[in-house]
């Protein structure tokens, strides 16, 4: 039996209207229910009016979902930052993890890079490193906090 290989995709987009906590809750509830049924896991961030989403799962399922996500009128200017095969999931405990993250108040410390700038650098290795940094941050912030089951 051939199994669909695991893949991950990271994309960014711009919200077409501001998302308050209620709208985010609705989005997450829908996303978690859909992902649970499709063997997908991942993380969603909403920062400064922009979405950054990581999806993991069977490669063909991800491709199909990306087409659907692209048609969602709640966002625009969708751009895929990274798509690659993976050996194991980074967000296996989350059908769609979420953690609030704000825009920094000032510049990064001298000599430091900025993860969100690097995400959109267009350089594959830089983007991959930035995704790993986000993953570390998310796992630290969510440590011990279970995801709300899909309703």
């Amino acid at each position: 039996m051939t199994q669909d290989a695991l893949a991950t995709v990271v994309y960014t987009s711009t919200a077409t209207q501001p998302f308050d906590s209620s709208a985010l809750s609705d989005l997450l509830r829908q996303s978690r229910a859909n992902n649970s049924a499709a063997d997908l896991t991942g993380m969603l961030l909403y920062r400064g009016g922009r979405f950054i989403q990581v999806l993991e799962g069977p490669s063909t399922v991800i491709d199909g979902l990306m087409a659907t996500i692209g048609r969602d009128s709640r966002h625009a200017d969708m751009r895929v930052l990274l798509r690659e095969p993976i050996a194991e999931r980074s967000f296996g405990d989350w059908t769609m993890g979420y953690e609030p993250i704000g825009v920094p108040a000032g510049d990064a410390p001298e000599g430091f890079r900025d993860t969100f700038d690097d995400l959109e650098s267009g350089d594959e290795s830089t983007v991959a490193r930035a995704v790993r940094e986000l993953t570390v941050w998310f796992r630290v912030r969510r440590q011990g906090v279970p995801e709300t089951p899909p309703s």
Binding site: I101, R113, R129, R132, E133
Partner: peptide, 24 residues
């Protein structure tokens, strides 16, 4: 070592593509 700020006060270090650790 490459240091990156993820958010105010949270920084991740990498060396030649390998994750080193983080500061909170």
């Amino acid at each position: 070592v490459t240091w990156a700020r993820v958010e105010d006060g949270f920084h991740v270090g990498s060396r030649r593509g390998e994750f080193l650790g983080y500061i909170d």
